[in-house]
Nucleic acid binder design. Sequence first.
DNA 1: TTAAACTAGTTAGCATGCTAAGTAACTAGG
DNA 2: CCTAGTTACTTAGCATGCTAACTAGTTTAA
Lengths: 158, 158
Amino acid sequence: MISSPPFHETLDLSLCGSMGRVFRLCRDAVTLAVEPLGLTQSRWTAMIHIHHLKQGVTQQELASSLGIEMPSLTRTIKQLEQQAIIVRRIDSDDKRSRKIYFTEQGLLLLDALRDIMAEVKTQLYAELTTQQLDTMAYGLVQMEANARRCISHFSGEQ
Amino acid sequence: MISSPPFHETLDLSLCGSMGRVFRLCRDAVTLAVEPLGLTQSRWTAMIHIHHLKQGVTQQELASSLGIEMPSLTRTIKQLEQQAIIVRRIDSDDKRSRKIYFTEQGLLLLDALRDIMAEVKTQLYAELTTQQLDTMAYGLVQMEANARRCISHFSGEQ
DNA sequence: TTAAACTAGTTAGCATGCTAAGTAACTAGG
DNA sequence: CCTAGTTACTTAGCATGCTAACTAGTTTAA
């Protein structure tokens, strides 16, 4: 396990700047790799989550899974629908909500996407052990909880 | 050291989705905490980097330190200047470049900002050991390198 | 049963990142 | 010394996140 003090300082500099930069780079790497499929970051991310949540998911559930707000999702969903990758059907039990399904063409695209992502994932995680990845993932979850607590702390104070 | 397999899977789901979400949350926590100072995320981040790089830094150097592109910085710099937090002076040795300095008012704001950030940082890093933070920071640096290699791989291929 | 409150989704408009393309100043080769 | 290329910065416009405020169904409670 290589552990170098300077890295910790790098992270400290802007607190979350490193994370943002790495996030953008990883996202760009995937987006570039899937470019032949005509997908942008928000669109391929949504497709992967729809797949994991199973078809028939509502926009609310999808937004929650993606960790974004509903209005952010609306735009992406509209684009996926225009590209005929998904269709939405109004839920007969609750006419407010719309359930999402892949089209046949969408399913084909999803397969291609998953193949490419598997390859990119391997490249992005290169040189990192499972233990390191777990520590990072654990740290992210912990920081997420900390940040949420911190946000309610400062919102409540006003 | 707590290491839980499910977390790794969480990270895997959208590859970099967790990182983006945690990044946004941490950023929002700081931005909320410094809200009384009238600063947005891009502005406080830039201020911290200017401080670390020492005054008289050029926009080019600052953009590089922030890990963003010049046009993204232009907007932020303009706002900081309008708020009279910084001033820019054309470099007499190279009239293309502009050096950045804090105003007196800007320095006062910087002090207040740094105090608040120190507190928020403590909260965001709560429950995480130095070793865990180092592993995360190391992982981020490694992933950044991987992502850059991946990006040139896919750009070169076209 | 009907008015009030809630919930799913949308629209409008802001913040911040980006790329592409333009301007002005510097540098290098003939 | 002048043209060609490079560099620092700006402008314009796109992508994706957000909040606030709206519409239209659903639920709750008097």
